[in-house]
Design a protein around this nucleic acid. Sequence first.
DNA 1: GCCGTTTTCGGCCCGACTGTTTTCAGTCG
Length: 578
Amino acid sequence: MPITNAEIAEILREYADLLEIKGANEFRIRAYRTAARNIDNLTRSVAQMVSTGEDLSTLPGIGQDLATKAAEIVRSGRLPELEQLKKEIPSDLIGISRLAGLGPKRTGALHRELGITRIDQLEEAVQQQKVRLLPGFGARTEQRVAEDLSRERDTPVGSKRYRLSVMEEIAQPLIEYLSAIDGVRQVTIAGSYRRKKETVKDLDILVTHHAKCDVMQWFVEYEDVEDIVSQGDTRSAVRLRYGVQVDLRAVPQNSYGAALHYFTGSKAHNIAVRRRGVQHGLKINEYGVFHNGKRIAGETEEEVYATVHLDYVEPELRENTGEIEAAGRGTLPGIVKPDDIRGDLHTHTKATDGRATLREMADAARQRGYEYLAITEHSRHVTVAGGLDASAVEQQIAEIDQLNEQLDDLVLLKGIEVDILEDGTLDLPDEILKKLDLVVCAVHYKLDLPAEKQTERIIRGISNSYPTILAHPTGRIIGRRRASSLDMERLMRAAKQTDTILELNAQPDRLDLTEVHARMAKEMGVMVAISTDAHSGEELNFMRLGVFQARRGWIEPGDVLNTKNHKGVKDWLSRKRK
DNA sequence: GCCGTTTTCGGCCCGACTGTTTTCAGTCG
């Protein structure tokens, strides 16, 4: 497998982290981080670009120097300059610099003054109270480091991120609590939560309130607060008992839009917008947009964008991956909304590993106002889920036909989630697949084949004339299982050629396609289906998570199969069998 | 190290809070 964009980006990030501890020029460090982020968000493989001799310096944020370095990483898998720098600045220092109260500068001082290179040496120095003696340090800083070190020991994951769905559960009661405070006007969650990232590290909450309301005091007294990190008049931070950090910012009402824009980020998007402001002679901060010290906007986000001649940018698009240029040209995509969805094309029932009956699933779909719902059980090879063989499929077909006669406002589509076996053949014979309305195919075993084999296996699977949707293409489970190694570009070309649709699986721990892959599908003209893979009626609600992910991938309603009505879906599905 | 409506050098986003400080650096977002 050639090196992935994520791996290249990681190497550049590590280099940036070490440069920072070393005390290098901050703009040079920023250049490495920008390049890493851009490579992460690229919908093309850098390795492939190198192999076809393309000029990497055409990529945003990559000049001659970084093009050379990136090419070297592709060729050898390493960056010699990084190896060299590691001899000087041990990479364990990066972990140390992430401890509370420490940053690159103080970490550099610990290394220089006390010779600290590892975490156990830092623990010892803290115990001996040597740290507080260093210039710029003191007893309080040493204390904070000691506390964070012991927290690290208890829960080793330093920068834990939470799935968006988990964070929603933590955020909801807190929002209700804050909204109920007398004098509070607006409460909004900003940050990556508002941008609907698949995982969220902390909560950024914005409030506006009447003059007399001491919202900060109320905030730090919330019942789940374990630790007050900081407390001021306009900004406070706490750590909740689940370990989640929450930042609260209070702003005047007429700054609400500017503050919301600022705290929604992303950081890269904000920097780009502000730079645009500077070009127009404007200063943009969380209180508003200023021209020669005079406030000219700030009440709404739309106003802020308008001052720099940009269309309003949906939060999900704010990553500085082309949205600012598009907003300037008036060519932003009209991205898909939850209301655009007319049905679900991947669900299970009690016939395999689902928890609801056919009837219950149908009722849940009707309640959501869907026009259609596909029942797609596992095939026999997935023994743990009680996958269906041909005769069991026949039986379910009969049951669905019968139920369809009773339903007048919903069509149940007869489907299957057939396994693509290791050799690329399908787990059920064509004779049974041809009787179904919809064949979803997927890989459930041998997820760790080498990239070339895995890619060929799947391409062989979708080249069969019956499967029309490839479910959870990479097989990743967030925080638990890596994505299969796949040549995504090749796979998507094959999908395009064979009229195969790629699923964006909306299970909260899958969200597979990623936003980068979703955007790649769009650019390559590959149709996407957003499906919940629901195992109960409740799980149909995961649809919104899938839509959020699609929005982050610039997907428009026309790119999504299940925004079409029943006839539109049928027409699309019949393409392959002709 | 990148980049160009300030174009090949000289800029590079902006502010709050904390702790160590007598005016500010570092961290954080």
